[in-house]
Structure formats: C-alpha cells, structure tokens
Design a protein around this nucleic acid. Sequence first.
DNA 1: GTGCATAATGTAATCCATTACAAAATATGG
DNA 2: CCATATTTTGTAATGGATTACATTATGCAC
Lengths: 335, 335
Amino acid sequence: MTTIADVARAAGVSTATVSRALSNPDAVSEPRRSQVLQAAKALGYAPNYAAQSLRTTRSQRIILTVPDISNPFFSAVIRGAEEAALAARYSLLIGDTHHDSEREEYYAAMLTRREADGMVFLGHRLAPTMVALVAKQGAEAPIVNGCEFEPGLNVSSVHIANAVAAAEAMQHLYDLGHRRIGVITGPLLSPISRDRLSGVQGAAAGQRLWDEVLVRTGDFSVDSGEALAHELLAEEHPPTALFCFSDEMAIGAIAALRERGLDCPRDVSVVGFDDIRYARAFQPALTTISQPKEAIGRKAVEMLLAILSKKADGLASITLPHELVVRESTAPPAR
Amino acid sequence: MTTIADVARAAGVSTATVSRALSNPDAVSEPRRSQVLQAAKALGYAPNYAAQSLRTTRSQRIILTVPDISNPFFSAVIRGAEEAALAARYSLLIGDTHHDSEREEYYAAMLTRREADGMVFLGHRLAPTMVALVAKQGAEAPIVNGCEFEPGLNVSSVHIANAVAAAEAMQHLYDLGHRRIGVITGPLLSPISRDRLSGVQGAAAGQRLWDEVLVRTGDFSVDSGEALAHELLAEEHPPTALFCFSDEMAIGAIAALRERGLDCPRDVSVVGFDDIRYARAFQPALTTISQPKEAIGRKAVEMLLAILSKKADGLASITLPHELVVRESTAPPAR
DNA sequence: GTGCATAATGTAATCCATTACAAAATATGG
DNA sequence: CCATATTTTGTAATGGATTACATTATGCAC
C-alpha cells in the first residue's frame, strides 16, 4: 500500500505538505500542490480510511436501521437518506433489524465503537445503548428518528401528521357514503399506529359513527392484512370498507376479498397507507395515503448532520406533508 | 472516550493484557481475564473501530452495490447478503448505484481506501478501479458478481441458469398452446438479458416458432413494461402471450392490457421473472421464474469471505436453482 | 532445591494520516 | 536594505489498538 510518506518522498516534500495539498489545498503554494498531486496520481495513492478516521475522530459514516429492508416503503426512505448522506460526503451503513431488539442493539453499539458518527432509526424504540447516549448527551445525541414520533424518546424526528392523514382517509370513505368501516392497524406499540388510530377515532366520532368502526390489530404484512380482512368480513354485519395502515395489508385484504368472491371496489372499498411503488400498478390501483418517503429519509439525514455539526438547537420534530391519493380501490358502497 | 489504557490502569495490568483478554481470551489467565472484563464493563469500554482497523488492516466490512435498492428483488438479495455477513462478523455497506457508472466508481474507490475488505456487486460491469484490481490480483481480487455472469470480467459469480429458466418460461407458454409470443427483455448490455434471450431463441427454435417471436427491449421498469406491451399489442398480429424479463415489467404489461380492455390471462397470458414479494399477491397472481434471492446474496458473500480468507481456489461461477412458478397470469390462448 | 519448559505478562514499535508548533521563506513598508 | 508581517513548509506528537519480542512467573521432573 502506498502511504502519504511514499508520496512525500516522491514529490520531495514533507508528509504535512502532502496531507495539506490533498485535504486543504489553499494552504499550499501552487507549484507544490501540483507536484504533490502528480506524485499521488503516479503512485495511485488513496488515503487510508482507518488512519484518517482515527486521527480525525470522525468516521464520515451514518448508520440507518430499518425494520425490513425488503419493504419498498423503507427502501424508498433509504434512497432519500443515501442521497443526503452522499451529498455531504458521508456514507450510509444500513442495518436491517427484522424488528428484532437484539439487532437494534447490535447496530446501536456501532456508535459506541465509533464505527459511525450518528444514527437514523426507522422504528419506535431505542436500544439500551441509545437510551444511555440520549441520557448523557440530550439533544446533542446524534440520533434521529424517522417515520415515527414518540416524544418520550427525546430524540428529533421526521414524520407525517399520521392522525390527520388517517382522519382524511376515513373522511374519504364517509364522503363516499360508507358507514360501517373495518380498520386494520399496525402493532399498537408503535406511535405510528396509535396516532393513526386516534385520527380514525376523531373522524368517526365527528360523524357519530365510532360504534360502526371495527378495529383489528395487524403487523403491516400482506398476510396479516389477508387474515384480518377475512375476520372482519365474516362478522355478522361486515363493513363495506376497509382502511389498512399499510399498502401491504391493503393488498392482503384485497386478496381476501377475492377469495370470498367479493370485488374491490364494487363490494368493498379498501384504503391503504404509504403509497408504495406498486400501489399505482396494483389491480385495482390503491387509494392510499402517500408519504414523502425520499424526503423523510433526506430530511432525517440532514437533521442528523445538523446535530453532528452543532448547528441544531434542541430537539426538533418535523412534519412533512402527506397526500390522500384516490385511485380505483374505493367507490361508493354497493346498493 | 475510554481507551484501552484506561482499562489497563483500572485493572492494574498492561494494555497488551487488556487487548488479549478482549480479543484472544485464551492467552490470559483466568483471574486477569475477569479483572479486565470487569474493569472494561465498569468503564463502559468499547474498542475504537478505526484504531483496530488501522492496526489489523482489516475493516470487517463488505460493500454491496445494487442498481436500485427500492426494487424488492434486490432488497431480498441484500437481506441474504446481510445475513451471511453478520454471521461472519462483517457488516455491510450498501451502495445504490442508480445504474450510474460514476456511482459505481465511487463505491469501488472505497476498496482502495480500505473502507471495505471486499465488494459484491449486482450489475454487469466493473468500475475502472475494479478492473485495475482484477488485472493486478486476478482471482484473489476481493470482488464477487451477484445475479449476473459475464465471463469477460474475470470475477467469481453466483446466478441462476438464466437461459434455461427463460426457455422453461417459453415452453410453459407453448405447452399451453400459445404460438405467437411477445418478449420484453432488459437492456441487452447485461448478460442477464442476453442469456435469457438465448434461452428464448432456443425454445422457440425448438418449436420452429422463432419467427413468431416479437422481441422488444425494456429496462426492467414497470413503465417500460407498460409502454412496450402497448407496442406489441398494437401489432397487426398481436401476440397471445407476453414474457417479461422482470416482474415489474410484467406488472406494467398487465396494466397495459387493462388499459386496452384486455384481460390477463383470458385474452393474453403474461409471464414475469424474479418472483418478487408482490408476485403472489398481485391480481392476477403472476406466473414467474422464482430466483433464490436470499440465497444468491448469501452465497455471494460467502464466496467473497472465502476469497478474503484465502480459502478460495480460482474463479468460481455458481449456479443456483430457479423454479417456474405457475400462478394465475397464464392460461391457454382464447378461442 | 535446581533446571528447564511453558505459560503469562509487559514494553514498546507499529499501523497512517492530521495538525500544533517551530522554522524558514517571502512579501510589505519605510 | 532592514524590520516586521505573512505565507509556506517541516518536525514531531498524536489518535487507540495490536503484537513481536523480552521478561517474569509457574509447573514439572528429578
């Protein structure tokens, strides 16, 4: 491996000059600079990352954990995050936690070892190591929460107004004439589901129809959407519309309808959440709440970078705009 | 930050003993070891990654580049890769290249800076830096190609038998009674598409029906599938079946059918490729070639680890099994 | 108890780039 | 041309762990 010393020797200057020519060109006179650059190129020199990182105590790396990387919702967020990281010359370490707290802790420990300068997590809880960090450093802790917002965690976050969005979805169904609505939530541990459920309650109560709402708790997966839709449709008075807290569950729910010989939207309307890549192409195209996925990722990283460069003041909780996208999976109730 | 010296002081031993107690426990007597471990825990010590990496010249990191992280096909491969990496105490740096060669080079340069020990790339070409590495180190170059297989690159690879798989898909359509078949490929720059096209040609020629095959070149995206399906269906003698080289294009093609008032599979059958997560739930459920996505990721990383530990001998090109999954999107031709 | 093999521990060099501080070179003003 | 300010360059300490080699302790045989 060629080192900075080799370059210095070849260019006939000191290692300090080489270092400066490379990372702080203004501090070096023109003739030297080109001497050095030429020698560096000739030798194929590239700075050793570990040495650089050791000396500067910065890793130029951000760790991003997601509960499930193969969910296109999360991968869109990742895209935005990578964008923002790259623009600031950081690179992104991605950790798939599989919703598993041990893995969450595993990735969090990377902060302690200084493998990364900060962390963006898409989830609803902090691993022990992160709790300790937050306790010690408060708002300076280099941790940002994406998608969810749990005030008790004491970290900055970026998300949409989940309650409002959910209320809008319900209102859309009420406007179409639906009265009895089945709601399939995500795990109620996560604020994302609780907030959306609050929105559902608000909208339903506003219509004096809360007792016509049937709630089931799913886990965001296609399978749970399918199973719980079956349950709801088997009720004595089945709902004429379903609101699912993820597009994946909506897809599962529509599959359940099909299995029961029902048509969406003719017999039952379905609203999803997230507006994943396939929502548009799905048959029927999904009516859903569109989240600004890339923007969430981008913003989360930008907030983290602000914390890292001491430009952030205090905790911030940013709400990005969502949008109800009406497509084919909703229609007025039959008859 | 607590360092190894702090722990040494607290435990009343030398730094060497601390290091050994932590990373090579057998080299230290029992009493010392627990002394050290206790001190380390009490001080909340965690080894500094950069220092460790600098000294050992190993980063314990693998970089994996994908052309599009939000494609669930690739994210499934990523999952498998992360699995295998984690099991070997490596972590995965993921780079989304957006099919862009500058980004490919950007990530490849990380190898030069020793930010990663090796690289798995899901793509069909090598960035200049990687070409240089392969030229210098030959089969020892820590680079593995996943999904594709381009012998000219001189790197090991893991993939399925693309030509065979494509031929099977065609044969399935012939067996159903189709004669005139539209094929929507991916970019022909990539061997993955060329191999599949060869398989198509083989199967068609075997039936003496090659002149009934209509080929269009897409780019694996939903949109290109949709646009090219429209083109094919507007032909004077439109095909009765379409074979798309990705599920995304198949989804696009089915959307095109719908737009033209045609039903899949009643009017036109469609076969996809990859068996992504949504292929099953899609309406109609896609007939497709299932690739062992996680296994490809896992195997690619394992091969890379073998190269890194000098256990690999020469280049290897591993073929994993695929499977034609027949679902609802294919049926005998109308009439 | 002595002598030798083996195990346990310590000392200090090392990995490579950055940067505080010192020294040298150049510019500026009179 | 001298004195001082400014720019450029160099020397050497530094970051934190690992490990070759040297040293000390322990075990075992006689």
